[in-house]
Amino acid sequence: MLKGLSITPPVVGRISIGRVVEKNGKRLPEKDDQFTLTTQVQTRDGWMLHPLNETLRKASTGKLRAIPVRMLFNDPDLNLRADYSLFDRDTGRPVCVGNGETCMRATRDGIRQQPCASPDGCSFGQQGGCKPYARLNVTVGDDDELGSFILRTTSYNSIRTLAARLHYFNAVSGGLLACLPLELKLRGKSTTQSYRSAIYYVDLGLRTGSTLEDAIGEARELDQRRRAAGFAQAALDAAARLGFANGAFEDGPEESAVVAEEFYPVADGDRGPIAGVAQKDGLAQKEPAGATQTTATIEAVRPTLRDQLERKAALGGQAA
């Protein structure tokens, strides 16, 4: 295994509840109130839709607000990886990633492990815009049982809800989370922060028409069939755990373009996440007045990335 490279679940598509649109020559966040499944191919008009997007829409009674899914792993923390993340605002490269106790930070001397005080207690994170960031991998359909769709989010509501559901379902099923027939659901709520307008977050529940007892029974049957066929779920979890630990940062160069555009889109100097793709409670957030964009440490690791982007722009490519 190539050291220093995080080995993540194979991705065949994306799940979002928002998108980037071009208005007056600027790429701006636009929130939505339904799911969209896309491929990993992006054109000038946006991300290409995945064939399953149309299939699921035809099966739904209206807007696509529920997606039947299964988890790849029994360990909840392998399906949903959540951490405090600070990204370079220009390139989308991770600069500091922590769990509230320790963090991995890019410094002048390379990547170093340091204490993590969470965004509210970290002056470095407050200067750069550190915030919770999560990635959820799920399987949709039966074409590729080890291929997954990825949902990226910075929504507190989504992260808290998904984490709780995953741990609860794993507990009540006796550790058979990967065999449970589940459903991603889009829920709405109003808060004082949203000025009483509806915001949307992602939840995880049983499939429509199913009870918990039925779902657990189905999970046991599937687990028995898999064991009889030689399917080693524990070994799969162990391989995934080893792969995630193989690199300091999960997001690599190929993901940096997505993070730069969706986690920190720019509009007239304002920066914030996109609803449902990289979101905070379904709302595009505004950077606090007077907030510093970078620190000396961020600047120290940025020049090489900037040079690469400038060379690409000179060749007529788009900045990633």
Rank of each mutant, 00 (worst) to 15 (best):
M1G: 12
L5S: 08
T8L: 15
P9G: 02
P10W: 05
V12A: 07
G18S: 06
V21N: 06
E22I: 08
N24K: 15
G25F: 05
R27Y: 09
P29C: 08
E30R: 12
D33C: 07
Q40P: 00
Q42A: 13
G46E: 05
G46H: 02
G46W: 01
L52S: 08
K58N: 10
A59R: 15
L64R: 06
L64T: 05
F73N: 13
D75C: 00
L78A: 10
L80R: 04
A82N: 11
Y84T: 04
F87T: 09
D90C: 01
R93S: 10
G100F: 03
G100I: 06
I111P: 04
R112M: 14
Q113L: 04
Q114R: 10
D120P: 00
Y133I: 04
L136Y: 03
N137Y: 14
V140T: 02
G141D: 04
D143R: 09
D144S: 10
R152N: 14
T153C: 03
Y156R: 11
I159C: 01
I159Y: 01
T161A: 11
L162S: 03
A171E: 15
A171T: 11
S173W: 00
G175F: 01
L182T: 09
E183Y: 04
K189H: 10
T191M: 12
S194N: 05
Y200C: 04
Y200I: 06
T208C: 05
T208I: 07
G209I: 04
S210G: 00
T211S: 15
D214W: 05
D223W: 01
A229K: 15
G230Y: 02
A232V: 03
A232N: 15
A232M: 07
Q233V: 13
A234Q: 13
A235Q: 14
A235G: 01
L236S: 06
A238T: 02
A238H: 00
A239S: 13
R241F: 03
F244Y: 15
G247Y: 03
G252N: 12
E255C: 06
S256T: 11
S256P: 00
S256I: 00
G269I: 05
D270Y: 10
A275S: 14
V277M: 10
V277I: 08
K280E: 12
D281V: 01
A289V: 10
A289D: 13
A289Q: 09
A291E: 08
I298A: 07
I298L: 12
R302A: 13
R302V: 00
T304H: 11
L305E: 13
R306K: 13
Q308N: 13
Q308V: 03
A313W: 03
A314I: 03
G317S: 10
